[in-house]
Design a protein around this nucleic acid. Structure first.
Length: 446
RNA sequence: GGAGAGGUGGCCGAGCGGCCGAAGGCAGCAGUUUGCUAAACUGCCGUAGGGGGAAACUUCUACCGAGGGUUCAAAUCCCUCCCUCUCCGCCA
């Protein structure tokens, strides 16, 4: 029932798989619609229903005609071999062939529309997800640590960074434009130290395998993880190739195993990857216009895992814990929030955000987002697993995919600058980072 | 960027436009033989969707990189695209 190939014709015509198996969709349309609630508000459900039915009837017709054509052609062959006249049979089959072509042309249009609509239906939230309208309905799950006690008024990270000579937004604007940053000196090194610290912790302590993937991906990859077709305006796209800059390592790393089948005992598989991330940030004009919080390009260390369906929710807890471990190592106060149904991303079945404390803003800001996509991406990307070969009942099933930031590096720099700022304007470097900083303990004015 | 070669079932590898869902081999599964292993032999052995059956199963349809076209009929002919390999050029 989770099969994405409702029939063999569907895949080649669409080129990409769909979120919902058409039969599941047809049989449960009203239930799915209801469960999606606000999330599925812009889905044309009735049109979808009609198209599914049309597709079904047309396929039956086409199959019958093709059967006729096949038999007729065999007859022609027999006649010709027996040196009998075959003109009548050939003429009849020509008509049948034309009929098939007509139906298939229509069928193709129907399937294209259907696939496109289907790919725009969001994932179903898990039952444990709090129901709500927007971020205000998210549920705080836990807190760790305490805000720092500052003896001076908290400066923003951009004030600190500019006065310490490690952040340069003016020159970034000159080189490229708004929402870019240049890091120099100890700032650049801090960024690099964080990347290495995160990767080292995840690979040595948490059991992830490091991946360094391409930063440009094709359309199929973006469709599998759910960025396309609905959110193309959020992506940077190349002009001369149908390639996109990745908005997160989730895309290339999850797509490592697109169209692959794991053996059951290979799961779970855990990857960590450092990549830059590129986002258009369309529609966020006026938000976080200063500083490192919202850039078109930022660095991130990502965690991506593939599990069997029954393991995925336990895995989400675990993965979130791995992201938290970074903040704990750095001694940064944070809280974990369970996103409500209305605030979750398109592809997610369940999401925890980790929010770090920012003294200058006197609030928590997102520094990591950890999600379980269940089978949503696996269906779109055709990522399966099956039991040992030879076992009769070892039918392949879709894996569950998960990912989370572990962590967003730029925002971690923000948190360090702000939480570790000293009364003399310098910034203390958390101890775990010092080995990565050549022993440096403070970032001071040059 | 230029020139050439190629993409067929889990793998290797055949395939005059019709009886080709596709020879053969390897691997795998079941069995015979066997003191064990091995070998030998026999059978089975792609995926997906629809119909029938309680089920073993059966029947129809699709799939030979992808998409179009020619034809009564395409793995086979034509066009476009993608990918891989070799050589040349260029480059980190």
């Amino acid at each position: 029932m989770t099969n994405p190939y409702p029939d063999a014709r569907f895949q080649p015509l669409s080129g990409t798989l769909t979120m919902y198996d058409l039969r599941t969709l047809r049989d449960n349309l009203d239930a799915i619609r209801e469960q999606l609630g606000l999330r599925g508000a812009d889905v044309p459900w009735d049109r979808l229903r009609t198209l599914i039915e049309q597709r079904r009837t047309m396929m039956t017709q086409a199959e019958q005609l093709r059967h006729e054509l096949k038999k007729g052609s065999d007859e022609v062959a027999t006649l010709k071999r027996g040196k009998q006249p075959a003109d009548a049979a050939m003429a009849a089959m020509k008509a049948v062939g034309e009929g098939i072509k007509t139906i298939e042309d229509e069928l193709r249009t129907v399937e294209e529309t259907l696939t496109d609509l289907n790919l725009r239906i969001p994932n179903l939230p898990h039952t444990s997800v709090p129901v709500g309208k927007d971020a205000g309905d998210n549920k705080e799950v836990r807190k760790w640590g305490m805000p720092p006690t500052l003896t001076q008024p908290a400066k923003s990270h951009w004030e600190l960074g500019e006065s310490l000579g490690i952040l340069d937004f003016d020159r970034a604007a000159k080189i490229t434009g708004a929402r870019f940053a240049v890091m120099t000196g100890a700032g650049a090194r801090l960024e690099r130290a964080l990347i290495n610290y995160m990767l080292d912790l995840h690979t040595t302590e948490h059991g992830y395998r490091e991946v360094l993937p391409p930063f440009l991906v094709n359309r199929s990859s973006m469709t599998a993880t759910g960025q396309l077709p609905k959110f193309e305006e959020d992506l940077f796209r190349l002009r001369d190739e149908d390639y996109f800059l990745i908005p997160t390592a989730e895309v290339p790393v999850t797509n490592l195993h697109r169209d692959e089948t794991f053996t059951e005992n290979a799961l779970p598989i855990r990857y960590t990857a450092y990549t830059p991330c590129f986002r258009r940030e369309a529609g966020s004009y006026g938000k976080d216009t200063r500083g490192l919080i919202r850039l078109h390009q930022f660095n991130k260390v990502e965690l991506v895992t593939f599990t069997k369906p029954e393991q995925s929710h336990e895995e989400l807890e675990r993965l979130t814990g791995h992201a938290e471990a970074i903040l704990q190592g750095l001694g940064l106060h944070y809280r974990v929030v369970a996103l409500c149904t209305g605030d979750m991303g398109f592809s997610a079945a369940k999401t925890y955000d980790i929010e770090v404390w920012l003294p200058s803003q006197n609030q928590y800001r997102e520094i990591s987002s950890c999600s379980n996509f269940e089978g949503f991406q696996a269906r779109r990307g055709n990522i399966r697993y099956k039991g040992p070969v030879g076992k009769k009942d070892s039918k392949s099933e879709f894996v569950h995919t998960l990912n989370g930031s572990g962590l967003a590096v730029g925002r971690t720099v923000v948190a360090i600058l702000e939480n570790y700022q000293q009364s003399d304007g310098s910034v203390l470097i958390p101890e775990v980072l010092r080995p990565y900083m050549g022993g440096l303990e403070h970032i001071t004015k040059p």
